[in-house]
Each structure stands twice: as C-alpha cells, then as structure tokens.
C-alpha cells in the first residue's frame, strides 16, 4: 500500500467515482438494448451491406479514442444538425455535459458488446430455435424464450465487460464531455487531472480503486463464462 493511502481515502472527493458508475451503468443499459438488436440482425438476417454495417460497428475498436471523440464533436457539437436538434428539444447543448459522457461510454463499449453478443447468439445450437418455430412460436418468442435464455450467461458476461469498458473510457469522454470537476469529471479523467496538477496521492488512490473495480469485474466475467458449461 502506498503511504498515505488510507489518509487520502478519507479526504478524497468521491464525485468522479459516482459519476463514472452512473455513466457506466446507463451506458451499459443502452449498449445492451441496442447491441442485442444489432447482434440479432447480424446473426439472423442476410441483407445487403451486412458486412459494411459490421465494419462500421467495429470501427470504434480500432480508431484512436481522440479521433472518435473528434468525430462525435463534429456530429454532436452545438453547430451540428444533431446538436442543434438536441438543444432545441432539451433547451441545453449535449456536449460537455454528463450525458455526453454517457454517449462517449456507449460508443466505447458498443462494438465489443455487439461482437460478443453476436458470437453468443450464434453459438446457440440452431435446432433449438428451429424446434421452437415448428412448435408454433413467432420469431420474437423464439428469441425471448429460447435463444436469449440459452445465451444469457455469455450475454451477461458481455454486459459486465461493457460496463468495465464504459467505466474506463478516457479519450472520448474528455473530447466531448470535457473535464469539468463536479459535473463531467469521471474517474479516468480525474486521475489524469490529478497527475497533471501534481497530486500524486490522489492519482494513486483513484487508480487503485479503479483497478479494484476492474479486477472484480473480470473475475465475475470469468465465473459467468465458466459456469456456462
């Protein structure tokens, strides 16, 4: 344990941690809902541009986060079509708010979720879905009652993993949500801020906390993956 760890623990402003957890939770829910939809389409339908869609969904994994953040800024900024639409509707801009941090976290976690959800859905023996169809079940029922429950552990593992990734996003978040203490400063950003301002004790404490959370998440993912058999 680094010196002063417990001392720092009592003095730390925990806002970044709570913000990160809240942002990650919301982002995970959004990612799972839309990710499952996308994964279902990719796993079940043959359509033109399917591989293109897959590539577009996967792109964020290989792009530098700053590039991704820049694009989002262009698309969602106050001068953009979407940005103006958002401002007209909600009365406030989207960028540099905690909601923007959610967008950043979704963009960061979505591709991986789609990839693993698609693999999970495709790994379910097709004869179960076919049996369900011959037993009179419409497609939505086949998915909700048969395919999804049979893939649930892998999908849950993917969701937990998406949560961890959302929790750790830095590049995209700082580009579109900024670094406003008490408003948009997530844990990862707060660590960067602490190092920049020479507060080594704070950086260490926050880093240990985030490492612990990530470690627990990985442990849970592994257990979920293993009990699949």
């Amino acid at each position: 344990m680094p010196s002063g760890f417990f001392q720092t623990l009592t003095q730390v402003d925990w806002f970044p941690l709570w913000l990160s957890l809240r942002v990650a939770a919301l982002a995970t829910v959004i990612s799972v809902v839309f990710g499952l939809l996308a994964a279902y389409c990719l796993a079940n339908f043959e359509f033109r541009g399917k591989e293109l869609l897959d590539a577009v969904i996967t792109l964020p994994i290989v792009l530098p986060p700053t590039v991704l953040g820049y694009y989002l800024l262009v698309v969602l900024g106050r001068d953009s079509f979407l940005g103006r639409w958002h401002e007209a509707f909600w009365g406030a801009p989207l960028v540099f708010t905690w909601q923007a941090a959610v967008v950043a976290a979704v963009v960061h976690s979505f591709p991986l979720l789609v990839k693993s959800a698609r693999a999970a859905l495709e790994s379910v023996d097709a004869s179960f879905a076919q049996a369900a169809r011959t037993l009179g079940a419409p497609e939505w029922r086949v998915f909700l009652r048969v395919t999804l429950p049979l893939a649930r552990r892998s999908i849950l593992a993917a969701a937990v993993f998406a949560f961890a990734r959302s929790l750790g996003d830095f590049g995209v978040t700082i580009m579109i949500a900024g670094n406003i203490p008490g408003r948009t400063q997530t844990l990862a950003v707060a660590i960067y801020d602490a190092v920049e301002s020479g507060n080594g004790a704070l950086a260490r404490t926050l880093s240990i906390v985030i490492a612990a959370v990530a470690g627990i998440v990985l442990y849970v993912v592994n257990r979920l993956g293993r009990s699949e058999e």
Binding site: D125, S127, F128, Q130, T134, L135, G136, P138, V146
Partner: peptide, 17 residues
Amino acid sequence: PARLRGVGYVFQNDAVF
C-alpha cells in the same frame, strides 16, 4: 412459415429446451 404449418418435428438431437 414453420410455425403455421402444424407439423410436429422430433429433431435428431431431440432439441428439448
């Protein structure tokens, strides 16, 4: 579609859920 055919099908791997 299969669900409207009224055909019972016992699969090779029995496919019991």
